[in-house]
Design a protein around this nucleic acid. Structure first.
Lengths: 165, 165
DNA sequence: TTCGGTGCAAACTCTTTGCACGACG
DNA sequence: CGTCGTGCAAAGAGTTTGCACCGAA
């Protein structure tokens, strides 16, 4: 469950953004926002739908897609494709930018940060006079656990959601 | 047009791979390979289809998708999504690994290399005992040209194919 | 001769859109 | 009350798949 003060902060940010853009503050938008911020995991559009359905909250799939786009524009979430067709998201409030390491065997996603890499990116952008707004770094390979097993596949199949800090 | 000696080399690589895997060497597979290696640009599955149709070569869309997957497994091409839904590919033979900088205004893609970043990635992988097989680094932002124009959009609309070294 | 490969069309998955109705400002 | 947002269902885009036929080994 999302902590109350964080929820308030995030609501305020969205409210400001909507006002600034002349958009309406609808219950659906805040409901999606709350759901997005209820975990620290990566999620996809459909996860939000499923989680909301479980709580008997009715927001259509279309609205979820539209709201996720809005939240991305507002900077409250970030899109991060992990090589698949689907889009993955993660929220940004109170989190550093981080990179992803994905195990191609078990699907596990490990997050890591690297100031040094970020600095080097800035240097490169200056060289090309490129105004960077976002970046994605994904490393693909085989995780520690999967290397240990005989068939090269860890027992725990993480699919997509586990995030290790 | 693809240089003859390079073409021979690449054919040999594919032939070896097919033999090793017990797969068949079909004309379709080599035709797709040649098309893939006929430019140094990023391309998507449909580009290959269109280019082959222009040359009156008949390979079905299904076979192109299946062959691209095969070529990826063989290591002759690399998949590199640039934030969109579609998959982009680029061939690898005789090219260093490089990263991408994508302009969100005009779609231009700039390639760059950074040994320092690659070294840092290796360090991180060692820390996590992660066996990296591939990586993708994409920087998103506004390119030099687009920053100059009043509407923030360069005249030349590159869509997806131009690659600058 | 025998599987694996191909072409075709249909199916699938994820995402976007048109339209009529509803509700925020 | 006007307009923007929503829900629904249908359309789109990209990719995958089932099946019958074909051809490399």
């Amino acid at each position: 469950m999302i902590e109350e003060d964080k929820q308030k902060e995030v609501h305020k940010e969205l409210r400001n953004y909507l006002q600034m853009q002349g958009l309406k503050a609808t219950p659906e938008r805040f409901a999606v926002l709350d759901e997005v911020y209820s975990t620290n995991f990566h999620f996809e559009a459909d996860d939000i739908l499923v989680r909301m359905r479980k709580k008997k909250m009715h927001v259509s799939r279309a609205t979820i897609y539209r709201t996720l786009e809005l939240l991305e524009n507002s900077g409250l979430i970030r899109k991060a494709k992990l090589g698949e067709t689907k889009a993955y998201y993660e929220h940004t409030y109170g989190r550093h930018h981080h990179e992803h390491m994905k195990c191609t065997q078990c699907g596990r996603v490990i997050e890591f940060e690297s100031e040094e890499i970020e600095k080097l990116q800035d240097v490169i952008c200056r060289q090309y006079n490129f105004q960077m707004t976002n970046h994605i770094l994904h490393l693909f390979g085989v995780c520690e656990d999967c290397q240990k097993t005989t068939d090269g596949k860890a027992k725990n199949n993480y699919t997509t959601e586990l995030t290790v800090k």
